[in-house]
Amino acid sequence: MKVLHVITSLAAGGAERQLAALLRHTDMPCEVATLTDTGREAGVAALGVPVHSLRMRGNRDVSAVGRLVTLMREGRYDVVHTHLYRACVYGRFAARLAGVPAIVATEHSLCTSHIEGRPKNASIRALYRASERVGHLTVAVSRAVADRLAEWGVRRVHVVPNGIDAAAFAFDPEARRARRAAYGIPADAFVIGGLGRLVRSKRFDVLLSALGGLPSAWLLLVGEGPARPILEALARYNGVADRVVITGEVPDVPAHLAAMDVLAAPAEEETFGLAVLEGLAAGLPVLHAACPSLDELPPGAAPGARRVAPGHTSFRAELCALAQSDPVRLPPPPAVAHYDIRRHVGALTSLYAHVLTRGPLPSYQPDLSGPLGPLGPLGSPEPP
């Protein structure tokens, strides 16, 4: 099977990191089309994957559909797999016009009130539904996302959780020393970490508030996004700017996790919780307000993770308690093994074959696959 992945951009968000991990571990011939050029294409191209940039001039640049159709016809792809809202809308219409045999979309970022930071409204929902009808299957990264899609009236849904390459996140003490030195963080400082797009919904302001009660602690925020100026201003207002490092996009997330002593994820709603899994793979204790990837596993699958009530008070208390203890590195828990990237790739490969040979999957049902255990099934297609 020859696959074209269509994604809005290759900026370093969770969906983009997930696509890069998939490309590293698949044996299928793949190419990538990006709607916008962000300068990150070289990282994927270095994997030996051809990258085509559509260079869209804005959200309403409908000429991109024609360019996608031409690319798809010339490439003679068996599967077009789209990622993120704009790519799903443009990519599914283009794939249908190009006559691609299998059209699959992954929904990474559908929350209760917004999709990729956009407030959910009638026009966004209508456009999403219209494009969904011309595709064959929508992949949800968690049961929580599948339930939200069902509420939107999307029926051809199958759950394939995100995957993680645990070996890539193994703790490296030299990387810890190097990253701390590069940012001027003392070797013995207690470092609170945050990982993800800098958007309001991630609630990284909670960590800035907590830092005010920890006079010797540092905050290392790994990511980029529109909320960065707000966070920088808040750090100055709280008098903690000299102990806050905001890295922007980085190519070496595991090395930055090595520099942390705890990963904190204060977002009140998530679609999967990839950063939490990455923190656990790096051996960090993790505090999280929401994490569907752990909620959908049996109790005890992630002993290093602790759910914290959303808000400033709860996270400040938990971080203060951790700061009083010695730094620890924990073995990756069963949850990390359950979400192994190779199982993710295998499940997607099976879905591609299913669509190509048997047509769309049955309607999504909330209880379609039963309880998931650390060694249980991972989103495999239903039997005929």
Rank of each mutant, 00 (worst) to 15 (best):
M1T: 09
R17W: 15
Q18C: 08
L23C: 10
L35R: 04
A42F: 12
G43S: 13
V44I: 15
L47E: 08
G48C: 08
V49C: 07
P50T: 07
L54F: 05
L54Y: 07
R57Q: 13
G58C: 12
D61Y: 11
V62G: 02
A64D: 01
G66Q: 07
G66D: 13
L71T: 03
V80G: 03
T82H: 01
V89G: 03
V89H: 03
Y90I: 05
G91N: 11
A95E: 03
R96H: 14
A98C: 14
A102G: 11
V104F: 07
L110Y: 07
I115T: 01
E116C: 03
G117I: 04
P119F: 06
L127D: 03
Y128P: 00
L137T: 01
A140I: 15
A140R: 02
V145Q: 01
D147Q: 13
R148H: 11
L149K: 02
V154Q: 09
V154G: 00
V157E: 00
V159M: 06
N162F: 02
A166S: 04
A167H: 09
F169K: 05
A170I: 02
F171T: 00
D172V: 05
E174N: 13
E174D: 15
R179Q: 04
Y183K: 04
G184S: 14
G184D: 14
P186L: 10
P186S: 09
F190G: 04
V191W: 00
G193L: 08
L195Q: 09
D205K: 06
L207I: 07
A210R: 02
L214Q: 11
P215V: 13
P215E: 14
L220C: 01
G225R: 02
P226A: 15
I230Q: 12
L234D: 06
D242P: 00
D242N: 15
G248R: 12
V253S: 01
V253Y: 01
H256M: 02
A275C: 14
V276G: 01
L280I: 12
L280N: 08
G283C: 13
L287R: 12
A289C: 14
E296S: 07
A301P: 13
A301Y: 10
A302H: 10
A305W: 06
A305S: 13
A305N: 11
A309Y: 03
P310C: 07
G311D: 01
G311A: 02
H312V: 15
T313C: 06
S314E: 15
F315Y: 12
A317E: 11
C320V: 06
D326H: 05
P327Q: 05
V328W: 07
R329F: 13
P331F: 07
P331I: 11
V336S: 03
H344R: 13
V345D: 02
G346S: 11
G346L: 02
A347E: 00
L348K: 05
Y352R: 13
H354F: 10
V355Y: 00
L356Q: 10
L361C: 12
Y364P: 08
Y364C: 08
L368T: 12
L368R: 14
G373Y: 14
L375N: 14
P377R: 05
P377G: 04
P377D: 04
